[in-house]
Each structure stands twice: as structure tokens, then as C-alpha cells.
């Protein structure tokens, strides 16, 4: 029984907008399965008294005061953009692939 099915990998690929071929799906499903099985070994050593955690450090409440700091200039902000129009980031058509 594998930890992740081929269908689940196909679903994730779709959500991630990755066009995977059938061969690639087989390939990645096997790899991801191996990774998940490896990571799952943690639960073999984590006893009941070790709660699941999302963060490596036991700290909470790290905040900044509500103070304005300088922003980038629009030129700097847009300098890495593949396309720019009217000082805005220009992006390809949003709807279409599902339409």
C-alpha cells in the first residue's frame, strides 16, 4: 500500500499547474511515495508525549510595531517583472485554461 497514489499526484500536479506526462506521473508518484515513507519514520520515535509541531523553535508572539518604513520605488519594484504596463505588473490572460 503506497503512501500516495498516482491519482493524488495527478491532482497535485493540476493544482500546481504542472503538465506531467503519464511517464512523469509514474516516476514522481514513486519518488514522492519514498519521501513520505521516509518522513513517516518520525512517528515511530515520536511518542504520545511529543505533540505534532509546525515550527522548529518554541517561540510565539513575534511582532513588529505598526510603523511605516520606506517602500521601493515603482521602478525598483517593476525592475524584475517580465512585462510592465502603466506602472503595473502585466500578466497573461487569467481565465482561459479552464474556460
Amino acid at each position: 500500500m503506497s503512501a500516495i497514489t498516482r491519482d493524488e499526484v495527478a491532482h497535485l500536479a493540476r493544482l500546481s499547474r504542472l503538465a506531467l506526462s503519464d511517464d512523469e506521473l509514474d516516476h514522481y508518484a514513486a519518488q514522492l511515495d519514498a519521501i513520505i515513507v521516509a518522513v513517516a519514520k518520525v512517528s515511530e520515535v515520536a511518542a504520545e508525549d511529543v505533540p505534532p509541531s509546525s515550527h522548529a523553535l518554541p517561540i510565539t508572539n513575534v511582532y513588529r510595531p505598526d510603523q511605516v518604513r520606506p517602500s521601493l520605488t515603482p521602478q525598483q519594484a517593476l525592475s524584475g517583472a517580465p512585462a510592465v504596463e502603466d506602472d503595473r505588473f502585466r500578466v497573461p490572460r487569467i481565465l482561459g485554461e479552464e474556460a
Partner: peptide, 12 residues
Amino acid sequence: RIQGADHSIVDY
């Protein structure tokens, strides 16, 4: 509207 648009531009 988003339907039928050729492309979009974004202000963040």
C-alpha cells in the same frame, strides 16, 4: 471584466 480580457495588469 476578466472574461474575454486579453491580459491583466496588477497594482500590489
